[in-house]
Amino acid sequence: MIETQELTRRYDKAAVVDAVSLQLPEQAFTAIIGANGAGKSTFLAMVSRLMPASAGRAFVDGLDVATTSGDVLARRLAILRQDSAVTARVTVRDLVAFGRYPHSRGRLTAEDRAQIEDALDFLELAPLADRFLDEISGGQRQRAFVAMVLAQDTDHLLLDEPLNNLDMRHAAGMMKLLRRAVDERGRTVVAVLHDINFASCYADHIVAMRDGRVIAEGPPEVIVTPSVLEAVYGIAMEVVSVRGYRSVHYYR
C-alpha cells in the first residue's frame, strides 16, 4: 500500500509538490498525469526516497520511506528513473542481475538466475543479454532497466516516464507488460505518463496533477473528460470513444 500525507517539496518558497495526500489502490495500475512542471516526477521521487520531502510523509506498506532502511524498502519497492544514461560499461544480463541484489547480496542462487532469465525473456532481451549497455539503442537500454526493476521482484513498481525513448510498438508492448504485471502477478504499478491515451487505455486509476497539487483522481471514465483534461493541461481537448476506450484528440 502506498500512502502519502501532506507530502510537500519546496524550492526556496515555491512548492513544487504541495501537501499531497493520497492512497494509491493496491494491485492496480495507477497513472500520474499532468503538464510539465506539475510535480509528478518530484512526487514519485519523494515516494521512492530518492529525494527528501520538505514536509509530510510517505509510506510503503506502512513503512515510512524516510526512516526505513534502504535494503528493506528495496525488497518492497522498485523504481525506474527517467534518465537511464550510464557511464559504467556492464552487460544487459549483469544489469538485470543487479535487480536481484536486494535479495542475493551478490551471491546469485538458482532462483535468482531463473528470475533474471525470466525478466530478460519478458522484455525480449535474451538475444541482447551479453551486449554492453553502450552498444544498444536508447529504447533497448530503457527495456534493460525495466527488466532490472522487474527482476527485483517487488510488490510495488514506480516508473518515471517508462515510455521514454520507445517507439510505438515498444511503447504499446511496455504498457501491455505493465498491465500483465498487475493482472498476472498482482503487482502495484505507478507510472508517470505523458501520453494521455496510453493512460486512458491501460490504467485502472489516474491521478491528475497541476501546480504541485492533485486536482482530480479516479478511473479513466472520470478523468478522461474534456472538462477535467482542460483543467489539467490548459488546452482544448476532444474525447472520443474507440472500441470502448476513451481517446483524446488535441493535436490541432
Binding site: D71, V90, Y101
Partner: peptide, 16 residues
Amino acid sequence: TIAGLGRDSAVGLGLD
C-alpha cells in the same frame, strides 16, 4: 559497480 550505475539506481537497489 552498483554505485557506478548512478545514485538513483543504487538507492533503488537498497544500497547505502
